[in-house]
């Protein structure tokens, strides 16, 4: 790509990201789910289910609040991607995507722009969640490097979820496709050891959770918080693989949207 081409690409990415973040953070209907849901789940799970930490075999020295903090962090990252996907679908349904497609010399820059927006949007939530976590006395055994590991992992999950949702949004081009974006992510998140460690799950949920990459994101994230890094390689490997796979999925979705006329 020439330097002019790069400048133009970057400009489209930043333009799309600016507009998406601007809308997400200034429209009450969009801000509320973005900010409120993660806090709410954090409070509901850490508050309502804390007795679970007394179960035999439940060993997480940093406490149940920290245990749930990791899930909520990863969940907010995944749903941040999905909610941005809703915006893409809305743009196609109401024709705004045509304006973007007409103006952008390289249309893959639009997908990258949405992805950057999803990251920025999630970072706002991540900062607030972290502050809230420490405010309610969350314990952290790991150091700075481990915490960066947790946020890095969540960031990759955010991008994977965005690319998945973008692929759906550009194939269906209607906000009615929202459940198709949300439901698989919801299931992937909850068919994992959300409330108790993997070792305490039994039956079919244990079998499903073992094959679910989210399980390894959670296990790795929790190990980062407790300062005993485990499953890090598997988790990052799986996360990058998902980004690569859903990246192709999103680009094919973009081609389908182009073929259909936006």
């Amino acid at each position: 790509m020439t330097s002019d081409g790069f400048r133009s690409y970057r400009s489209v990415v930043l333009g799309v990201a600016w507009r998406t973040v601007h809308n997400a953070l200034t429209t009450p209907n969009l801000v509320i789910p973005t900010l409120a849901f993660p806090f709410f789940f954090f409070l509901a799970f850490a508050g309502g289910l804390s007795q679970l930490s007394h179960l035999p075999g439940f060993h997480f020295p940093e406490g149940y609040t920290s245990f749930q903090f990791v899930f909520v962090m990863l969940q907010s990252a995944a749903f941040g991607g999905v909610f941005t996907g809703f915006g893409i679908a809305r743009d196609f349904e109401y024709g705004f995507a045509r304006r973007l497609m007409l103006a952008a010399p390289h249309r893959s820059a639009l997908v990258v722009g949405y992805a950057v927006a999803a990251v920025i949007r999630w970072l706002v939530v991540a900062v607030l969640l972290t502050v809230a976590g420490f405010a309610v006395g969350m314990g952290v055994g790991g150091g700075g490097v481990e915490l960066i590991g947790l946020y890095g992992l969540a960031l990759i999950v955010n991008s994977a979820a965005l690319l998945w949702s973008a692929g759906i949004a550009m194939r269906f081009r209607t906000i009615q496709a929202g459940p198709a974006m949300q439901m698989p992510v919801f299931l992937a998140l909850f068919f994992a050891p959300v409330y108790v460690p993997l070792s305490l799950l039994s039956g079919w949920i244990h079998a499903v959770a073992r094959g679910n990459p989210v399980t390894y994101f959670l296990e790795a994230g929790r190990s980062f918080v407790s300062g005993e890094a485990a499953y890090a390689g598997v988790a990052f490997g799986a996360a990058f693989a998902l980004v690569a796979f859903f990246g192709l999925w999103a680009l094919r979705g973009l081609h389908k949207a182009e073929a259909a006329g936006g």
């Binding site: 400048r7 400009s11 489209v12 930043l14 799309v16 103006a103």
Partner: peptide
């Protein structure tokens, strides 16, 4: 804001 976005899209 629309113009701001459009000028960015056109670099």
């Amino acid at each position: 804001e629309h113009l701001r976005l459009q000028t960015a899209l056109h670099a």
